[in-house]
């Protein structure tokens, strides 16, 4: 008897997590001899957003879903960790942070009747702007579009003017000059062709958001032990693949950026990074207030391993 699962995700088919999910579904089908068939619905085609997935999988509306971890923060604040600014400074640290936090993620998912299958990273977030950003003064009054609460808090502290602009309004607002900068990855900038308005990508390693793929525990429990193992193995393979692919993907993005004459600014001055790190403190404190001992132990363990806060 074949099991047919519909998997919802908000990312596009031609994005890193989107391609990864297709490969994951193919692996599962192969390893189970076509007994477990996963159909991936990209671009939110099933009508669910990232923030709906936790409850949708919990209630069995969806057998499994891939979602931006930060979107679960209203219910399980621990997931905000992956999008806290300047905790991890590069992809290696981001993986380490995920490994440290994984038990807490699994616990939070278990509370919601689901099982973590794998994580999938996004390329680092930076600032698309009209000029290179080198000092805090460059941020003064900068009309920047942020995508979550952490970004708003951080950039407000830096004297910038973080604006809340819905995704569909970003391009029109850039066109009229009411927005001067966008906080997103090189990947996100590529999909919107941001170089048409902001030809400089400041690679600051601001944050390393994660996607989480989780399956409904009951649906998973109904599989045979062999099928369960096949799904878990495909998950591990997908995680390894996506964490490797993110580097080549980033390089590919940079090629596209250069083709379109985008200036890529790396190696921001340490003083600038320090100021940014200081500005995000309230966001960290807010998160620690919400997650208590659990959050503190994650950050402490992580700090011990990488040697910085």
């Amino acid at each position: 008897q074949t099991v047919k699962w519909d998997m919802s995700m908000e990312d596009r088919a031609n994005s890193l997590p989107g391609e990864g999910a297709i490969a994951f579904a193919e692996d599962v089908a192969k390893a189970t001899n076509g007994q477990v068939v996963i159909t991936v619905h990209h671009g939110g085609a099933l009508g669910f957003k990232n923030k709906d997935h936790l409850n949708a999988v919990r209630d069995g509306v969806l057998p499994l879903a891939q979602s931006l971890a930060g979107a679960f923060s209203g219910q399980e604040p621990v997931f905000l960790l992956s999008s806290l600014p300047f905790v991890a400074r590069n992809l290696d640290e981001a993986k380490l942070l995920y490994d440290v936090a994984r038990p807490a993620y699994e616990e939070a998912l278990a509370r919601n009747g689901q099982k973590l299958l794998y994580s999938s990273p996004f390329p680092p977030t930076g600032i698309w702007a009209k000029k290179p950003l080198r000092t805090v003064d460059d941020l003064k009054g900068l009309k920047i579009r942020t995508y979550d609460v952490n970004g708003t808090i951080t950039f407000k502290n830096l004297g910038a003017a973080p604006l809340q602009v819905s995704f569909s309004d970003v391009v029109p607002q850039l066109g009229t000059g009411n927005l001067a900068a966008v906080l997103t990855s090189a990947d996100g900038g590529r999909s919107l062709k941001l170089w048409e308005f902001t030809p400089v990508f400041n690679d600051l390693g601001y944050a390393f958001p994660l996607n989480i793929t989780a399956v409904n525990a009951d649906a998973f429990g109904k599989l045979s032990p062999a099928q369960q193992k096949a799904v878990m193995d495909a998950g591990s393979a997908a995680e390894a693949r996506d964490w490797t692919a993110v580097r080549t993907w980033e390089a590919k993005n940079y090629d596209v950026l250069r083709e379109n004459k985008t200036e890529i600014v790396k190696d921001a001055p340490p003083a600038f990074l320090d100021a940014l790190a200081k500005a995000r403190e309230p966001a960290i404190k807010d998160w620690l207030d919400k997650t208590r001992a659990n959050g503190k132990s994650i950050l402490d363990t992580f700090a011990q391993k990488v040697g910085h806060q």
Binding site: S73, G74, Q75, D148, V149
Partner: peptide, 14 residues
């Protein structure tokens, strides 16, 4: 029961 809030700055109780 679970104190679920929205993900925005306002944290509207859902």
């Amino acid at each position: 029961r679970e104190h679920t809030v929205s993900t925005g700055l306002l944290e509207v109780p859902l």
